[in-house]
Amino acid sequence: MEVDKGKGEAEETRKVAEADRDTVTLKSSDGKLFEVSKEAAARLSTVLAGMIAGGSIDDNGTDLKQIGSEALENVVDYCNKHANSIPSAALISSSISFNTAPFKEPEEWERKFVDRLSHDALFDLVEAANFLGMERLLDVTCHKISEMMKGKSPDQIREVFNIKNDYTKEELEEIRQELAWAFYDD
């Protein structure tokens, strides 16, 4: 079986994985195979956890037709990095709190992880994370996208994301009126 490993995978990881058979093999839409630790996959992805529990994992590569090889490589890379990182105090803080944001700020390594992605790769990863039910990865990638929107005018946002403005002038004016509370000049 030929395995195209994720960038973050070390040779030892592969050996250990093969010895213990403690990994799952995932197959991208373009037919490439990736191995990821069963434990990390089950912990980070609700969909993979369900498949592992339900026995629908294929030893020859579980088909993930919706996910391209580049995005799947990033998913696997994230799982490996996540398994190796020590959770910060923020992530293990007390559950009873007053109005703490449910979202925990990205860790330094998570920030770097998403910062190195190209625009297209970032969106592919968002979709993959959403498809696989990877809540944390989805949050981290969405946080990155929100940072790309923050403080920008609608025109600037359209430019960054290639959004085509299909409103008429009248419609725009109507919305500005309707949501006047949001369109104030501070």
């Binding site: 625009h119 979709e127 959403n130 969405c142 929100s146 929107m149 994301f161 290639n162």
Partner: peptide, 25 residues
């Protein structure tokens, strides 16, 4: 990240749930 990648609009294709997460940030 500040230019629009290959020129296509990825963000508009995202499902609403995902857009809500983005906007909530």
């Amino acid at each position: 990240l500040d230019a629009g990648g290959d020129g296509s609009d990825h963000i508009t294709d995202l499902p609403d749930d995902v857009l809500h997460i983005i906007l909530a940030h």
